[in-house]
Amino acid sequence: MNDDLESELRNALRRKQPSRDLMPAIPRPARNWWKLAAAAAAVAVVAPIGGGVYRAHEQRKAKDQLVFALRLTAVKLQRTRAQMQTIQMEKFQ
């Protein structure tokens, strides 16, 4: 009797197929905190470097403009001096 009941239970409790696929919808893993920290650190390091490069470029440009202006002034002074010398020589003659 017990054996009959046991075999009946095995038969009644056979595995069944689910009616749909049970693969769960896996949520996308959240970004790890260390990745975010690394990204922030990279920004913190790169930003000043970028800023420094920009500042150096601007300084070099200003220096070039200053040198150009000085050269221009020197040329103008030289011309002016030459004109004054010419005028003085004409006066003495």
Binding site: K16, Q17, L22, M23, P24, I26
Partner: peptide
């Protein structure tokens, strides 16, 4: 692999819950 494990065991897990 999760997908393979689900395929392999879904009948067992579902049947335990269903019965």
């Amino acid at each position: 692999d999760l997908e393979q494990l689900v395929r392999e065991h879904q009948q067992m897990v579902f049947s335990l819950a269903y019965h």
